[in-house]
Amino acid sequence: MSQLTGAAVQKSPRASLQRVDEWGLLRGLSFFAIVMQHSLGEFIYRADILYPDAAAIAMLYHLIRYGTLTFVFLAGAILFYQYGRNDRRYAPVLTKRIGDIYVPFAFWTVLYWILTKILSKQPLFASGDWPAFLQQFIAPTYGYHLWFVVMIFQFYLFFPLFRSAASGIGRWTGSGNDERAKFGRIGLLIVLLAIAYGWLMYLSYYRMPEWQTSGLWKTLLDYRTYEFPYYAFYFVLGGICGTYLEKWRAFVLKMLPWSTLAFIGMYLWMNLDMLRSSGEQINLNYSTYLKPSSFVAVTVQILMLYGWVLLLQKQGGWWKKLLALCGKYSFGAYLSHAMLLTGIAVITRDWLFPGWHLLVSVLTALIVASTALLLCAGLSRLPGGRWLTGGAGRGKRKT
């Protein structure tokens, strides 16, 4: 999903921005994680699945929960890296992002509407369908993965507010010549923000479903998974990465042993919590993003993965080249992958795989991911292909 988390870099009158290769690798990893999540979700609820297979799928599921939220992190990193200074004009960037993000999203939204109607053997536009159709461009349901485009685009819309807030905070943290004190203040602010965000996750998961509301408040609560404040911590964390890139790299490498241990601990806890909560039938919904334990697990996983990706960046090899290529075409592939997965699901839903659901779901994910990437690469080369893929692969990228 490179178009969601990157934009063409423009030269600053003061300095030329350097390419940040590890962000492309993280995009590739995150795209694979998202496709795998959706493939696992397709097979885990089938009637013929055995409990050991379902438990194994849940364990793999918790290894790849970082995908979507890493894209939020990358959006913050790239926006602050490229446009964090108040002297950089942002209006042309926003206009470009509408063409690169929202136009392809709108096109695929229509395609998913058509596909859903065909599969359900309904007319494309029955009486009273127009409100539901228009809703798909604000709160999509027919393309179950398109909610993310709506949510993350809000960060592009409100980025000037984030930048203004960061500028004000920067004047406080940057006062004086003591660099250690400066980063100590930044660390304190992150800890306070994490506590506040953890409290929001607690309310979202344990309390908000019980709140009795009506009108606008009910709508805001019902659609909170579409709203950017519920993902803002990852965006701010990415903003710190993009603003203090070299310091960030040194930090994640120094913390790599500890972040890895922390993730292992959270991974074990998440599996125990799901198995204990699900009972006889595994339910992946117990590991929603808007949950305190998911917040902690994904945060330490992002720190861990960033460190490992930096090491991979230094080592090179075919795995690095593969991830970089996947990151290049990830947005168009993200938009199309659910359609490909649906096509496979329609064919295989009557097939029985007792004892083989884990293997079949992994193979399905690999087929879907590779096909979606090839499809995006092909579409991007057609005249007007950028309106389908967001300009994937167009020109040289700095991030």
Rank of each mutant, 00 (worst) to 15 (best):
A15T: 14
L69K: 09
M201I: 06
L161M: 12
G332W: 06
F331C: 06
Y205M: 11
A338E: 10
V9Q: 11
G391E: 01
L284M: 10
N285Y: 07
S380P: 06
W199P: 02
R97I: 02
R171Y: 12
V346L: 15
L192D: 06
C241R: 00
S39C: 09
L290A: 07
D87E: 09
S120N: 15
G279F: 03
W387Q: 01
C376Y: 04
I101H: 05
G327Y: 09
F148W: 02
K291Y: 02
Y306I: 04
R65M: 11
A365H: 06
S370Y: 05
S120M: 15
G391I: 09
A181M: 14
E246W: 06
Y306E: 01
L193H: 05
Q212P: 05
I34A: 10
V72H: 07
P140F: 02
A47V: 13
K182Q: 14
L340K: 00
L359N: 02
L63R: 00
E246C: 01
Y102T: 07
L268F: 15
A392R: 06
N86G: 12
A392P: 05
W319M: 14
F183H: 09
A345G: 12
S127Q: 15
P92L: 01
M274S: 01
S336V: 00
A77Q: 03
V298N: 00
A77W: 01
L115A: 14
Y61S: 08
A106Y: 13
I49F: 05
C241I: 03
F32I: 13
L237V: 02
R249L: 03
K96S: 10
G215Q: 07
G84T: 01
F233Q: 01
Q154K: 03
N271Y: 05
L237E: 02
T299Y: 07
W113P: 04
G41I: 11
G198D: 09
D48R: 10
W199T: 01
Y206C: 06
G332R: 09
H145Q: 11
W108V: 03
P229S: 03
L359G: 06
R381V: 09
L375Y: 07
L29I: 11
S30K: 00
M339T: 08
N271C: 08
N86Y: 11
Y66G: 10
L50H: 08
W199K: 10
A372Q: 02
A377L: 13
L272G: 14
L253T: 04
Y90S: 02
L17E: 03
R349I: 11
S293M: 08
V35H: 03
A77R: 05
D222C: 06
K396N: 15
A297D: 10
G41Q: 15
L26H: 04
L322A: 14
F353T: 01
T371A: 13
P209Y: 00
V149C: 04
K398H: 14
